[in-house]
Design a protein around this nucleic acid. Structure first.
Length: 216
DNA sequence: ACAACGATACCCT
DNA sequence: GGGTATCGTTGTT
């Protein structure tokens, strides 16, 4: 499959104020936005279809639960900062929310690939477009994001940025391509705070991770 | 059954 | 209590 007709437009980049809000709000509004990486070979990325909020307080699943440590240092930076952590020798990518010193973030769990399909296929070692950026660790591998990008500022970086959505959330099931229905539910793969409805996704999207019942 | 996946489980600076 | 490691859990074929 070829890349999307029009290339990503950096002028549509999200401003600082977008990130300086509660993680639940940011997580919900990031659905439909474009996460893109600019490399020497061109643009890689796509539409954000799944996110999870991790809170600064009363969230036993959050890395910030024990305060600022070396590992989660960038999570306490200002909103718009990239927080990358390692898990089982793989990486997952978050965007920090709220002002400096708070310690909240949004985990980006899945993309609908739109640009740099071939590059992502090389990074992943698979062809299936659907699987390329499905799941947070896979997403990082597809984009080539590692701990090296931890702490990068998505508001000012030329390498990595998030662009405004060209989709709108709708209350009714998506019919036109320009709208989607926002799904909300418990976060995936955690063992604490299992009930908090902090996961957001494009309802019915085949690019969303997790079991089928959690995609609808 | 067997892949695939990863806000985990563990050992120790 | 933290940084780091690749195996146990979950879900699909």
């Amino acid at each position: 499959m070829a890349d999307s007709a029009s290339p990503p437009n950096p002028a549509r980049r999200l401003a600082r104020r977008f990130y300086l809000r509660e993680p639940e709000r940011v997580a919900a509004e990031l659905i439909g936005c474009m996460l893109v990486r600019h490399t020497s070979l061109g643009w890689i990325g796509g539409r954000i279809v799944e996110t999870e909020a991790y809170l600064a307080t009363d969230d036993p699943a959050s890395h910030s639960r024990s305060g600022l440590t070396n590992r989660c240092r960038s999570m306490f930076s200002q909103g718009g900062t990239l927080y990358v952590y390692t898990i089982h020798a793989k990486f997952c990518l978050n965007v920090v929310t709220q002002p400096t010193g708070i310690g909240s973030a949004v985990l980006i769990r899945a993309l609908q690939p739109l640009w740099g399909l071939v590059q992502m296929q090389v990074h992943r070692g698979i062809d299936d477009e659907r699987q390329l950026a499905r799941g947070p660790a896979n997403l990082c591998r597809a984009l080539g994001v590692t701990i090296a990008q931890d702490g990068l500022d998505l508001v000012t970086s030329d390498e990595l940025m998030i662009l405004k959505a060209d989709w709108r959330a709708s209350k009714t099931p998506a019919v036109a391509l320009e709208t989607f229905e926002l799904g909300v539910g418990p976060r995936i793969g955690i063992s604490r705070a299992v009930d908090l409805p902090l996961r957001f996704f494009v309802r019915g999207s085949r690019y969303v991770s997790g079991p089928a019942r959690l995609r609808n």
